[in-house]
Computed example of a mutant assay.
Amino acid sequence: MDWNVWFVLLLAYLFGAIPAGAWVARYYGVDIQKVGSGNTGATNILRTLGAGPAVVVAVFDVFKGGIAVLLARLFNIEGPLLGGVALAAVLGHNYSVFLRFTGGKGVATSFGTLLFLDPLVALLAFPVGILTMWLTRFVSAGSMVGGLAAVVITIALGRPFWEILTVLLLAGLIFWTHRENIKRLQAGNERRLGDKTGVAEAPQTDSVTR
């Protein structure tokens, strides 16, 4: 790989690493990693600060992944290397250098990368995740089912192997970062959408899965 590719991969990681959730919460005087789930994503922002800040964080997290893919294409990066850029952006979000390599769970950023990588797959998988979330009221369930749907759709549409592998790895990261949620779903004590979180509440998850 030439230096342009390494440069774009680094930029993709840094774009993904921008901790919008932590910075928005800090504006409100809250350390988001010390409340609720400790997650910096939009769901914890919603439970802690409300819908307005959550929408801001969600939109930013989606488009920082998309911008990483768009930037790579401006450098004429396609194929497997483009998949690597998408993964770098999501890894940046999950393990942000600005948050001592902690962060969010990568769902919105994964959607953003996929939206720019393959809009049809993203737009077909999105309603599956949303419907699951609406029926179960579990954001975690909707996130994981949406990730699985993206894999199935990518295969069904006959996309190139590198794209299938990229989407599979993105879905795998979603399941990995939701491993504590899976345990809580099995135990029957996972929070449902709409549940509120007090700012004094201790995080539910360890620092690795935030």
Rank of each mutant, 00 (worst) to 15 (best):
L49W: 08
V128E: 10
A68T: 08
T205E: 08
D31A: 09
V8K: 07
L131R: 14
T48I: 06
N44K: 11
I155Y: 13
R184H: 03
L10D: 04
I164A: 15
T40W: 01
L115V: 01
V56T: 12
I77M: 12
D2L: 10
A150V: 01
F111K: 00
D61H: 03
K105G: 02
A25Q: 11
L87R: 04
V56R: 01
L46V: 11
W23H: 07
T166V: 13
I155F: 12
A54E: 03
V128Y: 11
P53F: 06
V151Y: 03
T166H: 02
F111A: 02
L185M: 14
A12Y: 07
V5Y: 10
R192L: 14
F116A: 04
A108M: 03
V24R: 03
F60S: 03
I174D: 09
F63H: 08
V55D: 07
P127V: 13
A156E: 05
H178C: 13
R159P: 06
V57D: 05
F75I: 13
H178M: 14
L148W: 03
H178T: 05
P160A: 12
L11K: 03
G172E: 07
N4R: 13
M133G: 15
G41Y: 10
G83L: 13
V24D: 12
A125D: 01
L114F: 01
K105T: 06
A171M: 13
F175V: 05
A108V: 00
L165M: 15
A89I: 02
I18N: 02
V35F: 08
Y95Q: 02
G188P: 04
R100G: 00
A202L: 04
L70N: 03
F98M: 10
D206F: 08
G158W: 07
N4P: 04
R137T: 12
V121H: 07
P160S: 11
S37M: 03
F75P: 10
G198P: 00
P80H: 10
V151I: 15
G79M: 12
Y27T: 14
A58S: 11
K105R: 15
I182F: 14
G16P: 04
A54L: 05
G147A: 06
M1Y: 02
A150G: 05
I153Y: 02
T132F: 14
L71D: 06
G38Q: 09
V62K: 05
G52V: 14
V107I: 09
E190F: 01
G129R: 11
V69F: 06
L10Y: 07
F101Q: 00
L10N: 05
T136A: 11
A187K: 15
S96H: 02
V151E: 04
L11W: 01
A12S: 13
G104S: 03
L14C: 10
V199K: 09
F63Y: 10
G36M: 09
D118Y: 01
V24T: 09
A89G: 06
T102A: 04
I77N: 13
N181V: 09
G198C: 00
L123I: 14
D195Q: 11
A108D: 00
L135A: 15
R137S: 13
L117E: 04
L169G: 12
T113S: 00
R137N: 12
A86E: 07
L11C: 12
V69G: 07
G92L: 08
V57H: 02
A86T: 14
